[in-house]
């Protein structure tokens, strides 16, 4: 299993850089992973998306559908791509530490 290291901290990740242990998430962890997804700085807007995804997951056990994410955060889909250039599935879900999205991807 690969590791991702930043500022002396080390995380166990899969080959796509998704954090393996679901138990260790906090805001500092999200910030560390932001650097891997072309997110230079975690702004309020970024946190709004990450926290929504994270809370939805904790409540329902799944990632919210994209249209629900847009509706609830008030961001249009292309604005979410501006915030997270690698997209909601790869970028935002990785920072919120959700299981890696699957399907014919």
């Amino acid at each position: 299993m690969a590791t991702f290291e930043v500022d002396g901290r080390s995380y166990e990740v899969d080959e796509d850089g998704f954090l393996q242990d679901p138990g260790i998430w906090n805001e500092a962890v999200a910030k560390d992973f932001a650097t891997t997804e072309s997110v230079a700085e975690m702004t309020e807007a970024h946190w709004k998306v990450v926290n929504y995804i994270r809370n939805y997951y904790l409540q329902f056990g799944i990632a919210p559908m994209v249209r629900k994410l847009c509706k609830e955060t008030g961001f249009k889909l292309n604005q979410i791509y501006e915030l997270f250039p690698s997209g909601p599935a790869k970028g935002a879900c990785k920072l919120a530490r959700l299981p890696k999205p699957t399907g014919c991807v």
Partner: peptide, 20 residues
Amino acid sequence: WKHGGIVGVLGYGGGVIGRY
């Protein structure tokens, strides 16, 4: 091949199939 793989190019959420 391992399951899935989620990679892509900036600004796109599709168009690349990740394989490891």
